[in-house]
């Protein structure tokens, strides 16, 4: 009798909790889109290149939403997070870490991501002459990550290493951090570290444009795919505005020629909807590394 009642109570409480959750999620209400939509983009290239890349998108959004859109550029990653924080931009294109920082500090809401953004992986590469074929073989060797703040060069690989019970600081003899992906690869080639962690796309492009030779390295390990970049909006933006923006992105289809140009400029085949859950692993590791609070 008690057990049945307790079970029923459990369900009652669970239902209550879920009601509560639903109630909480529906709490925020905001306005529609602002009269002028300010778009901030990650400064991962020169301002001219960025303007060229995003201008078609700006024009498309402006036309399809029927409002003025402006591109805003920043000097570095930190500046775009701060700009988002003080409300200078409504829509922002973040890297993985910048996004979780903006989410932790300013409740940034993820909107969409490129089809390619959810298919990132990182390689652990070694010189071709090294004989070990898996990570265990490089125990007590030196490892080189990319920048400390790099999602693909450090954070996500660290997360997936931890999943294999590998703590770099104890598993490897030495942990290096290089400024860029190129530097990581060069460090491995020069023998500064036995193995290096590098963004798979960048590595492949380095191979493709001949900066490294294909036979120089072998890939010891590839991480599972993870998400990196994301378009996010201010939490003050209402549901309607958010939906309008997202639909505009989702409507970009490679089947239309003008859309194809916009997408090609951004290196995308199309956009997928995105949620915060996409970045839960990154969030976890960023918390652990005390990069966010």
């Amino acid at each position: 009798m008690e057990r049945i009642a307790a079970q029923k109570l459990t369900f009652a409480i669970a239902a209550l909790l879920s009601l509560l959750l639903i109630g909480c999620s529906g709490k925020k209400t905001g306005e529609d889109l602002p009269p002028v939509l300010k778009i901030g983009v990650l400064p991962d290239e020169s301002r001219e290149k960025l303007a060229e890349r995003y201008e078609p998108l700006r024009r498309y959004l402006s036309e399809s939403l029927g409002l003025r859109c402006e591109l805003v550029f920043y000097e570095n990653y930190l500046a775009i997070v701060e700009a988002f924080g003080d409300g200078s931009i409504d829509l922002a294109y973040f890297g993985g870490l910048t996004f979780v920082q903006a989410m932790a500090a300013f409740d940034a809401v993820p909107l969409v991501m490129r089809d390619v953004d959810s298919r990132f992986t990182s390689y652990v590469v070694a010189r071709a002459d090294s004989t070990e074929t898996d990570l265990a073989g490089y125990k007590n060797s030196a490892i080189a990550f990319g920048s400390r703040l790099s999602t693909s060069g450090h954070l996500m690989p660290r997360y997936f290493l931890a999943e294999q019970d590998i703590t770099p600081e104890t598993f490897f003899s030495k942990v290096h951090y290089s400024a860029t992906h190129d530097a990581t690869v060069e460090g491995v080639r020069d023998g500064t570290a036995e193995i290096g962690v590098v963004n798979s796309l960048i590595f492949n492009s380095m191979v493709a444009d001949g900066r490294i030779e294909e036979g120089e390295f072998h890939i010891v390990w590839e991480t599972p795919p993870y998400s990196n970049y994301v378009w996010a909006v201010q939490p003050s933006l209402g549901k309607t505005g958010r939906k309008k923006l997202r639909d505009a992105f989702l409507a970009l289809s490679p089947s239309t020629e003008e859309h194809e140009e916009i997408l090609r400029n951004m290196g995308a085949g199309g956009f997928y909807p995105s949620t915060a859950a996409t970045f839960s692993e990154l969030n976890e590791i960023a918390l652990e590394m005390e990069l966010i609070q």
Binding site: S18, L250, T256, A277
Partner: peptide
């Protein structure tokens, strides 16, 4: 191109549904 467009649309739909499904799964008791 049409093929790519169709593939994108269907993938968008799949992802939206996955998101919704995850949301429901989180909200679903036990």
């Amino acid at each position: 191109r049409q093929l790519a467009g169709l593939a994108l649309t269907v993938e968008q739909l799949r992802r939206l549904h996955t998101m919704e499904y995850d949301k429901l799964a989180t909200a679903l008791p036990l």
